[in-house]
Amino acid sequence: MAAADKVDPIHQFHINKLIPIEIGGYDLSFTNASLFMVATVIVASAFLYLTTSNRGLIPSRLQSVSEMGYEFVASMLRDAAGTQGMKFFPLVFSLFMFVLVANLLGMVPYFFTVTSHIIVTFALASLVIGTVIVYGFWKHGLHFFHLFVPSGVPGVLLPLVVAIEVISFLSRPISLSVRLFANMLAGHITLKVFSGFVVSLSAMGAVGIAGSILPLAMAVALTGLEFLVSFLQAYVFAVLTCMYLNDALHPGH
């Protein structure tokens, strides 16, 4: 049981109640997931706040990291949605930092990965799409439906194209959330499986220890890959957010 427990790759995704709270029949407990959301926010906020507290004209190393993050997201948003898009900068930056720090914190052994739960990524994706829809209708009214009608399409094809556009729009929150969730989940399961191989093989004596070198090397390589994926998925999430916000700003293609 104990050995099986160690190699159980799903175990790391279990949610445990730390402070049980129940209101109106809903389980709103403070769980380990909540704890790591708090940790993510505190780590990200503290880093950004403390590194920039000197307001150095010549940045220290850490201050330049914060500034790089700022300018990275700012140029990403400006490229995708133009200067008008800069009103969404706090949202995009918050999403990017939250996902990035949550992903990176998840890389620490025994830490919970907030973004490995589909409900979290789906909520973030819904926030993005909700912002797009609300802002799009508020800014453009019914004109926002032009998003689904690309210009220059022959009349015969129009119903088909509009149907495709509507489906692609509706699938955005799903693809956005599943991409992040699946990447984090799969990466952590793979890491756990390979690490589990090392443990179970090592238990089999000298031959097993020799044989465990391969999965160990694999686990090390995968750890590097997962750090890359952590950053990449935060980047992809932010880029797609920028592109969807561009639709809200300029629905006419």
Partner: peptide, 21 residues
Amino acid sequence: TFPSQLLWLAITFGLFYLFLK
């Protein structure tokens, strides 16, 4: 676990957003 996750995500992310903004 969804209600708890959503609630705490809303609280933490909301505060994070406000703090950053």
